[in-house]
Design a protein around this nucleic acid. Sequence first.
DNA 1: AAGTGGTCTAGACCACGCC
DNA 2: GCGTGGTCTAGACCACTTA
Lengths: 235, 235
Amino acid sequence: MKGVGRRIQDDLSRLILSGEWAPGRRTPTEAELMAEYGCSRMTASRAMSDLAARGLVTRRRRAGTVVAHPPVHSTSVLDIADIQAEIEARGMRWAHRLLDRQERSASPDERWLGDAGVLAVTVLHLADDDPFALERRLIGLKAAPDARDVDFAVHAPGRWLLDHSPWTDGEHRIAAVAADRDATEALDLAPGEACLRIERRTWADDLGVTWAWQTFPGQAYDLVARFAPARQDPR
Amino acid sequence: MKGVGRRIQDDLSRLILSGEWAPGRRTPTEAELMAEYGCSRMTASRAMSDLAARGLVTRRRRAGTVVAHPPVHSTSVLDIADIQAEIEARGMRWAHRLLDRQERSASPDERWLGDAGVLAVTVLHLADDDPFALERRLIGLKAAPDARDVDFAVHAPGRWLLDHSPWTDGEHRIAAVAADRDATEALDLAPGEACLRIERRTWADDLGVTWAWQTFPGQAYDLVARFAPARQDPR
DNA sequence: AAGTGGTCTAGACCACGCC
DNA sequence: GCGTGGTCTAGACCACTTA
């Protein structure tokens, strides 16, 4: 027996992290947890309070406890992939244009995306009708076969993947680069202008899902992250 | 009255964050806190357990509770402040030069660093004797009064702060910028060359500790981070 | 063996904020 | 008002780890 409080936290965090319980959904009250788990109120209260400290739920007296909404300015620089949400969070109107779409087999460099071929798309993101970011993306059709049937002129590929394709690991690479020819054209920049380049790869348990390069004009964009110290404490 | 548990946490976090209690020092046991604050064991236990969750103390059965050591550097983009470790991890020889050091009072923009003045230092980081990064840093003397007595020509300020000054919150801002005049000179760049600019601020509770701007030549540096979709794994 | 933290119970009073 | 969470008490048993 690992402890009832622990079980409550594990059960609820699984439901929340898997998306089964959407943000805003009410969780059981402390009284309901007492009945369901046969524990005292202190135990239920402590468990929920810990979940709140971890940011998974939000508690308010009388209003009850609800599944927390994802952080607005993310807890980490790492969630930046959803350009649509970023633009809208800045109060601007987001739009995108599909510039290119091809299905082909994976090159040796891209083998980690699986052996079912890749979808290569190029998308321009607009904020209030101005070019905001150029995104080139490969999607592994083994991990995300449904992507074949999606019209990426309607759904932006980054957002569609976030909504439809679960992943377990990711990697970012962030660098400053001079604008190349494609970026100069698409983003209407001066040649050589400083741009932020974000390269993002994600996996679902060792199978590659997607590989994206996003280029932002330096003056239009910066990444903000809030964080706490990494800990060496054993749990 | 806001609650005994809260008072315990506030008292101890002040002692720890001010440095009055050094890392490794034993804190009172739960029994001692019960006597000192006249509270029940649950209250003392919960308070200490919350401090542990915040990373300020480390608890082990039988061994007791001790002030936590400053955080370890990990794989995240967030630890980039320690340029020395970054360079050495790449197998290069690290060195630094103190270009400037001034003590002055905080300007209005810098008030969050406290009212005990700030130390402004400029440091050039070298990798294998080549310029690698230019760092300008403000240190809040209220949070880190010991910084006054440190010879930053010997100890790089970023590393010294990591080792000596605990913090609880941080923020990064990452952007691509064209090299300005200082960077052009110090890093031996062409004017306008794309650079990565990392701006980092840290706090100990609500008191600012340091504010740093680091500029890297774009071709010499990128940030890599690995991550997972969930905020944290369940304990 | 004994000291320390980990967790739980059953009950209590209070603070907040929707209705 | 009243349902909800916030916090506290006094006591208990257990788990771990060091001495």
